[in-house]
Amino acid sequence: MSEEPGIKKFMFVNRKAPYGTVYALEALEVVLITAAFDQDVSLAFLDDGVFQLRKGQQTKGIETKNFSPTYRALEGYDIEKLYVEKEALAARGLTEDDLLVDVTVLDRKALGVLMDEQDVILSF
C-alpha cells in the first residue's frame, strides 16, 4: 500500500464529539494540511468521534461554524480512507446511513490491528 519511498502511513484518530471541545475541528484542519504532503492518510472515528460524521448537523443556534460539510470535501483531497468503529455506531444507535460520507465500518479489533500498522498516529 504505502511502499513508495518517503510515503508514511498517517492515521488521525478521532474520539470526540464535534462541538463540546475543539478537538474535532482541529483534527480536520490538520488533516487538510497533511493532505498537501502526499502521504498515506487515513481517519479513524472511535467512541464519540462517530458523532462528527452525523448527518443533519445545524449549528446556527449555537453560533458555531458547522464544519460537518467539510468531511465531504476530503475525497477531493484524495483522502478516501475513513474508518468507523462498529461498536461505537451501535452503542449510539447509528448506522452507516446516518453518516454524511462513505466509510468503512470496522470492529474494534480490526481497528486496533490497523493502528498497529501505522507510521504516525495523531490523536484527537
Binding site: 493532505a35 498537501a36 461554524k65
Partner: peptide, 10 residues
C-alpha cells in the same frame, strides 16, 4: 458546499 476554501491542487 464544503465550508472551506480549497487548496490549489484541489
Amino acid at each position: 458546499e464544503y465550508q472551506i476554501a480549497p487548496a490549489v491542487r484541489v
